[in-house]
Design a protein around this nucleic acid. Structure first.
Lengths: 195, 195
DNA sequence: GTCTATATGCTGATAGAC
DNA sequence: GTCTATCAGCATATAGAC
């Protein structure tokens, strides 16, 4: 509550902007969210808002970075592998379509190397792949996942699938993302009995 | 060459616009391609070009529809299943990054129900899923794919994965899309010997 | 450091003349 | 079928007030 050196006005405002921006996107959709709207929602002019961020693109990447941290926090509890995390994240995401849309749209825009979020996504994919691959290796040692699967390759495939499912779900939300991811993992499991 | 009733000027011009548009996107990237540029490339003003299409969004969807038809044609040859088609399409796509970018970016934008290409993608996903599921069923009967896998669900997962791989590849083209899809299909195959 | 005001040059789209 | 003219909206940049 009281302002300290560790939490100066600038950081608080930045944080407020990020949270408000996510709210506005969730309400109005990514396509219909301009910097001016975000600025207005937080009581600033557009130039005032962009004082806190390098660009609109960087602002959006910061929202996702914030989300990543919250998610990582939630999964630091013992006994959750990255694979379980993918399923529970998918389950949670189904309740926040605005956030899913932000992620999906920004990832696509960031395909352009000149986009402000390009590096964020490049690094995010690399780190996520390492983390998921490590979990796969663990599960293999525990005998839960077939040992003939290449952890790194399988990790990339699972991450790609999670992303692709989000796109399909946003275009036609007639299925359960978490259930489908969970189904894939069950297919990667050691078969009880090969018929 | 000679203009006939079956190939009037309007259709020819439309076709020219679609092909030129794809060229320009491939050269300049999706982000940096405006209607005005496309119009100029084909010798029209932007208003003149938009006379042929409902909107920019519809124009782009038409390019992809054209691509779908070409691809479908190429795979009508005997002995190619939808699964083989996915792999060979991925192999071909790696040579036309501009087209991959168009597909990936437009799919993301079309998540908005108000987007001009929303219905195109909704229908495309549904049709593709049906087609891939049928191929999976065939392979299962032939004993090439595990019989315990649900064709419809697996089809959705494979399509999602192909899309997600395209995003990852456009952000960091340091892997072989076709090889990864092929690898997934091999994992779905009946195991020679469960260890 | 924080912010307003203002300006530039894009964008897709439309109305109506020819 | 194609044009000109025009529009509202956009992200972004800069100068400078406080």
């Amino acid at each position: 509550m009281t302002r300290s050196k560790a939490y100066p006005k600038g950081v608080a405002k930045r944080d407020e902007i990020l949270h408000t921006a996510l709210d506005v996107i969730a309400r109005n959709g990514y396509s219909r969210t301009s910097v001016r709207q975000l600025a207005e929602a937080v009581g600033l002019t557009n130039a005032g808002l962009l004082h806190y961020f390098e660009s609109k693109e960087h602002l959006f990447a910061e929202i996702l970075r914030m989300r990543d941290e919250v998610d990582a926090e939630a999964q630091r509890s013992p006994g959750t592998s990255s694979l379980d995390a993918l399923v529970s994240t998918a389950r949670h995401n189904a309740k926040v379509p605005g956030l899913v849309q932000l992620y999906s749209r920004l990832a696509a825009e960031a395909e352009d190397p000149a986009h402000g979020a390009h590096e964020y996504f490049r690094d995010r994919y690399a780190n996520l792949r390492t983390s998921v691959a490590a979990s796969i290796r663990q599960e293999q040692e525990a005998g839960a996942i077939r040992r003939d699967a290449d952890p790194e390759r399988l990790a990339r495939l699972i991450i790609a699938m999670a992303d692709g499912l989000q796109t399909q779900w946003l275009i036609d939300p007639s299925f359960d993302m978490a259930a489908e991811i969970s189904y894939l993992i069950s297919l990667a499991a050691v078969l009880p009995d090969e018929q």
